[in-house]
């Protein structure tokens, strides 16, 4: 009896101490973790726009995010609505509005959200704001997000974070498009492909092949199992050559398909298909959203 008592007290004290240590570290690191993740995300976006440590971004460069949700109604299961959380401008400044669209792409409702633009990148804050306006019967499921980079009142690029199945696990990537939906850049953020084979998708000579592909070409982009021409590889890896020569060389490869990585055709295909899907569904949705905004007289913040 005495033994059991001693064991239990010992265990309780150990648990208490361990809990104290872990809880303390959690509170200290939690904010730092969130901040760092957000910073990495922003750095990736700036990197895709061509800004880095040596070339700081201009002051008036702003990122405006659009979040897409799927709305399920408890009363009518077959009915699925789309909801876009978009930043709009009014007399007082910028605020978020929720546009609920029917499946056919027509506007059903436009609701005001109580959400500060600075806090919108946190999923929890968004979900709370949504619950407040939607009520209990409707449930919002997060779809994806897109970010519009704005400089002054001019659109610079669309940045699309997304994930798609790779060869082994999901690949997380970010795609940057010009305002006319030409590819501006690709960044692979997370992947678990085999090092040396599929892992090469993070290399410049693969990623940069997408750059400059016009939207029409992107929609039917394929992967070819041909060796990458040596002079093309040099340009893709950022060789120092005169700009005119570079432009001439690049235009030569503009309408070419993607050259597959050696020994990793499936990974190359997965990335190409994933990016293709991201770009085409974004373009379709974004055009529709713009149309609705113009007919409703909404001033979008981008």
């Amino acid at each position: 009896m005495n033994q059991i008592l001693r064991i239990t007290t010992g265990l309780i004290i150990t648990c208490f101490l361990a809990g104290l240590v872990m809880g303390g570290v959690f509170t200290i690191t939690h904010d730092a973790k969130k901040k760092n993740e957000h910073m990495i995300f922003e750095e990736t976006m700036l990197g895709l726009l061509g800004y880095g440590k040596s070339t700081p971004p201009p002051q008036d460069l702003k990122f405006k995010a659009i979040y897409r949700y799927l709305i399920e109604d408890a009363k009518d299961i077959e009915r699925k609505d789309l909801a876009y959380m978009v930043p709009v401008l009014d007399d007082k400044g910028e605020k978020f509005k929720l546009l609920i669209l029917s499946q056919e792409g027509e506007l059903k409702e436009a609701l005001d959200l109580k959400l500060e633009p600075e806090k919108a990148f946190e999923a929890k804050e968004r979900q709370e704001a949504l619950e407040a306006v939607l009520g209990k019967e409707k449930r919002a499921i997060y779809g994806d997000s897109a970010i519009v980079a704005v400089q002054g009142d001019k659109r610079v690029a669309y940045l699309l974070p997304g994930r798609f199945p790779g060869f082994k696990t999901m690949i997380k990537a970010m795609l940057a498009l010009e305002p006319d939906f030409t590819v501006k850049g690709v960044e692979i953020m997370e992947h678990e492909e085999d090092p040396g084979l599929g892992g090469e998708i993070t290399q410049d000579y693969f990623k940069n092949q997408f750059v400059g592909k016009p939207f029409g070409k992107l929609k039917e982009l394929k992967v070819v199992k041909e060796p990458l021409p040596e002079e093309y590889r040099k340009i893709l890896e950022g060789a120092q050559i005169p700009p005119q020569e570079r432009a001439r060389q690049l235009s030569q490869f503009k309408d070419k398909d993607i050259y597959a990585l050696t020994g990793a055709t499936i990974s190359s295909k997965a990335v190409t298909e994933g990016l293709k899907g991201m770009a085409s569904s974004f373009a379709y949705r974004f055009k529709n959203l713009e149309k609705i905004a113009s007919t409703q007289g909404l001033r979008l913040a981008f």
Binding site: V21, M22, V25, F26, T29, H30, A32, K33, N36, E37, I40
Partner: peptide
């Protein structure tokens, strides 16, 4: 758990 949280926060 401690080192895991620290690494995740400072060297993501």
């Amino acid at each position: 758990t401690v080192i895991d949280m620290v690494l995740a926060a400072y060297v993501p």
